[in-house]
Nucleic acid binder design. Sequence first.
DNA 1: CAACTTTCGACCACATTGGTCAATGAATTT
DNA 2: AAATTCATTGACCAATGTGGTCGAAAGTTG
Lengths: 207, 207
Amino acid sequence: MEKFESLDPDKQKKILDSALMEFAEKGYGQASTNRIVKQAGIGKGMLFYYFKNKKDLYEYLIEYSLNFIIDSYLSLVDKNEADFIKRLKGACQIKMKAQMENEHVFNFMGTVMLTKDLDLPPHLQKRYEQLQQQGYELLYEGIDKTLFRKDVDVDKAFNLIRWGVDGYQQDLLQRLQGKKMTELDFDPYWDEFYAYIEILKKSFYTT
Amino acid sequence: MEKFESLDPDKQKKILDSALMEFAEKGYGQASTNRIVKQAGIGKGMLFYYFKNKKDLYEYLIEYSLNFIIDSYLSLVDKNEADFIKRLKGACQIKMKAQMENEHVFNFMGTVMLTKDLDLPPHLQKRYEQLQQQGYELLYEGIDKTLFRKDVDVDKAFNLIRWGVDGYQQDLLQRLQGKKMTELDFDPYWDEFYAYIEILKKSFYTT
DNA sequence: CAACTTTCGACCACATTGGTCAATGAATTT
DNA sequence: AAATTCATTGACCAATGTGGTCGAAAGTTG
């Protein structure tokens, strides 16, 4: 492991990316170390020189991803912002920035969360639950409910706003499929996004 | 193929379900005929007695699913209903009924649509595009746009409503994970759903 | 009985799996 | 320069799994 971490960062990144992608799209069981090394452009031996086996690599990736997501996303969201929509908006910006910096981590964590085809060692399990906890707080802690219209159930409005934001993200991802994230001007998409945000405000907040 | 279709319907269903599930969660390439026959409770030989090979089976499933989805869902939606929300509500009811009748078809078609790891023979390709076309019309054809608030972009409102409905469905599916679809009272969930619908109406329609 | 249809699972050649290791080249130390 | 350590490779391994076949048994029909 120290072996791996004292490696040329570019090579590290290439290996991490390759492994993250493989595990993300095949899950732990069906992921192939052969494909990982091929994609990473290293010999088979090196992978098992850096990590003692497949599971070790997988757990390293989880720890790495947890750290990244918490440090570059969750912990940066302003939880003193009591306006739900504003907080969500801020969170999206931060998340997007993090995603540009490290494209595959979120995909990987996504499939880890919903396939869980391997039980984690306790210390990772703990950090993983921490992440879920932080994700929950991000959405529900310290929100000013008086901003919402009086004539709709606040929790339902919550969800509709959430689903709206998620839906847009999902839709955008689909439309941008294949495009290179770099060399791409996001401004028009941000504008579009803000337009949706305004509609949500207009629809679910008191006027 | 005629062999398969002149089979005891219960056995047919068991084989279809098994295959639909396997392909749905592994995709064409990673799906295993061994697992399919085991899950279906038949000998290996039978699968290749009914279908000449894996691809043949896969294409049969696609045709079967296309037929089912069109006949028991898309073609039943009332496209004369000009009220977007009402139409969507009706569509959900019909879809749910269809889904109860044939749990795995929609999952299967879902992964087929977004993985497309095999190109279809022309006649299936054509029917497949037909399906997409009908899905599109279901949402966008003959909608009365005057029902929407004047101060929001109609297309964006469209999408937000769609994402809301999809979001609820997704959320419900998660909450009901593991529960047996049969022996389950859906009424409270329908009520909840209608409550969301009412909120959407209140938020995006003219008052 | 014979003729025919279903059904099975052992079996095939082949591909892929996670993981090893002897060999080799590159640095570094002596 | 020699010796030692480190980094790197890919051929190789046993094990497992692949799609697909086939001979034989079991059922069915006449």
